[in-house]
């Protein structure tokens, strides 16, 4: 028996947490910023107010979580989409690096941007 521990439970926990965050927050934000504001259905907050809103420590934290966890959710689910949908399991090392690497890069980027917000 190999004593190698699996990362799978930890990655699954991230997947699951990201799924919850995306499920709760994404529809409203996508609706407002993706459709309602660009199409002029509703009036968006102006630059100053947006900056004040986003600059608030609680908002920064929420946005950091909102960017990071859903990326890990994507990484985990997309990995299995590629395995099952396209049956390319033999590429799994490349896929792992691209998926989780992408999520880590996105997390760092989110941290950098939100930390340095004026």
């Amino acid at each position: 028996m190999s004593a190698k521990r699996s990362n799978e439970p930890f990655l699954w926990a991230l997947f699951s947490a990201g799924g919850v965050v995306a499920a709760l927050l994404m529809p409203i934000l996508l609706f407002l910023y993706g459709l309602a504001f660009p199409l002029g259905w509703l009036k968006p907050p102006d630059y100053e107010r947006t900056l004040r809103l986003v600059g608030h420590p609680v908002t920064r934290l929420v946005l950091f979580v909102f960017c990071s966890l859903p990326l890990f959710h994507w990484a985990h689910r997309f990995r299995f989409t590629l395995y099952d949908g396209l049956q390319i399991k033999h590429l799994n090392e490349v896929i792992n690096i691209l998926c989780y690497g992408g999520a880590i890069v996105g997390t760092l980027l989110a941290g950098y941007l939100l930390w340095n917000l004026p």
């Binding site: 995306a22 994404m26 934000l29 946005l63 960017c67 980027l109």
Partner: peptide, 9 residues
Amino acid sequence: VAYFVVITL
């Protein structure tokens, strides 16, 4: 989901 995170960033 990932697409909208990129837009948010």
